[in-house]
Amino acid sequence: MIEVTDIHKTFFVPHKVKALVGVSTKVAAGEVVVVIGPSGSGKSTFLRCLNHLEAADSGHILIDGIDILDRKTNINKVRAEVGMVFQSFNLFPHKTVLENVTLAQKVVRKRGKSEAHDKAMGLLQKVGIQDKANAYPDNLSGGQQQRVAIARALAMDPKVMLFDEPTSALDPEMIGEVLDVMKALAREGMTMVVVTHEMGFAREVADRVIFMDEGAIVEVGTPEHFFQNPTHDRTKLFLSQIL
């Protein structure tokens, strides 16, 4: 589903930082991959490269067989197939919850009004927030907003879902409700790449865990391998710091 070959990314603003130095990996259809690592390790940049919110400097990224670093690729078409959930939700504050979920369906997928509405209501029910359909995002709690953001991404019927630290901006008591939605999604067989600090989620749901540091993948393995006998010193140190 996703095939990343040797991507590099350097930022020059505000100063020169090598964010990614030769990252390669593959994610199969239906697989749940959790990316962990210390802050500044490049894991968010890696995720944002996957739907071209950041343009990788070199290498290849194939999404469902399409190279998104090829200039001839219509990136908007690819992005419609790749859902993304942000740390800060990024709901559209001037639109109601329902409009948030229907807008892109109408504009990008060209669905009719009733079709988009039904799809949206179904998804809002799925994330347990259908009674807030006509509320504005600012009147929702963080956990509710993030669930709407997930519904908004799912409304496009994506083939892959990317989660960029989806629970980092939430109050502790709201983390659970968002993780539950993500777990349900994983059980349904959605292909997911999740950047998170929630080790419990990684242990329970991940098919594979990727540990990144200083812009490179340090260690890859199953959760069992990862949490019980990590091989690299850097991984051991990181795990000892957060567990």
């Binding site: 993304m84 800060s88 990024n90 559209f92 990008v108 991404a153």
Partner: peptide, 11 residues
């Protein structure tokens, strides 16, 4: 983030 959210949906 508003632009990014919109673009990530394929707009």
């Amino acid at each position: 983030g508003q632009t990014e959210a919109a673009r990530s949906l394929g707009m």
